[in-house]
């Protein structure tokens, strides 16, 4: 039995799996690039402009500028999470792609690493498109906002790994609805996204900072896009990196446990 904390051995061949997914993605690029484009518009209009008309500003920041980094953070979360839950599950279970690939020199660890890198890449692509749209609305400060792009990769890796842990233990594709609706949806609302956590009782802040990765990602993104730096960014970034590494290790070992019998 594999220890879920043992460090997996990954070969550079993992990038072949990443290339495979990229090739499929590029073939249908029109369909794939459309959603982040539209999503950025919808959020900004409905919440930023719509609700913003009444809210005006939060802590001296115009409301639309306040939620813009949250839109990016949610995009990082959703694109990686859904890619490595439903997307990976379909490739693993219905298409038997992982079985086909591990008959070649790639190991299951390489395959899962490739899938995680791909999930993170998808977050980056979505964030780049949304960043473009948000820039047109004039709610991104440059050049600091450009740092959102590399951070989208790390954040994407975090959510890809988190997703892969659920994929590794789910009994069926339908059961993936539980983490999606009970964990991801609430997280997109209670991570200091559309209102500051400080208006809720302190316990909410503690829980969010301890357990909700999006809280840290949105906090960092907000510091970069406003910009409004604070020493707490060090804490946020440390938390993100540590949890990302831990989840990647656990995700790969759980998948190995599921697939190598």
């Amino acid at each position: 039995m594999v220890n879920i904390f043992s460090i997996p051995r990954i070969n550079r061949r993992a990038w072949h799996v990443w290339r495979r997914n990229l090739t499929v993605f590029v073939k249908t690029w029109k369909v794939n690039f459309f959603p982040p484009f539209v999503e950025a518009f919808l959020y900004l209009l409905a919440i930023g402009v719509g609700i913003g008309t009444y809210v005006k500003e939060i802590d001296g920041v115009p409301y639309v500028n306040f939620i813009a980094p949250a839109i990016l953070g949610i995009a990082v979360m959703n694109s990686a999470f859904f890619e490595c839950t439903y997307g990976s599950y379909v490739r693993m279970y219905y298409q038997k792609s992982f079985d086909a690939i591990i008959a070649t020199p790639l190991s299951i660890e390489d395959v899962i690493a490739g899938e995680l890198l791909w999930g993170a890449t998808k977050s980056v692509m979505y964030v780049v498109i949304m960043l473009g749209v948000l820039t047109l609305f004039g709610v991104m400060a440059f050049p600091t906002s450009l740092f959102v792009i590399p951070l989208a990769f790390i954040g994407g890796l975090l959510f890809a790994a988190l997703a892969m842990c659920f994929t590794a233990i789910t009994p069926s594709i339908d059961a993936l609805n539980y983490p999606s609706f009970l964990f991801i949806t609430p997280m997109s609302l209670f991570s200091g996204t559309f209102f500051p956590l400080t208006i809720l009782p302190p316990i909410f802040s503690y829980v969010a900072l301890a357990l909700l990765p999006l809280t840290h990602i949105v906090a960092v993104f907000r510091m970069l896009t406003l910009p409004a730096f604070s020493w707490t960014m060090v804490f946020n970034l440390t938390w993100i990196v540590a949890v990302t590494l831990l989840l990647c290790v656990i995700a790969i070992n759980l998948m190995r446990r599921r697939l190598i019998v």
Binding site: K27, Q95, K96, S97, D99, A100, A103, P105
Partner: peptide, 16 residues
């Protein structure tokens, strides 16, 4: 694995 070729029982060609 570099030196073997495998025809599995299940058809697992890549539909994409």
């Amino acid at each position: 694995k570099h030196r073997i070729g495998v025809v599995p029982q299940e058809t697992n060609l890549d539909p994409d």
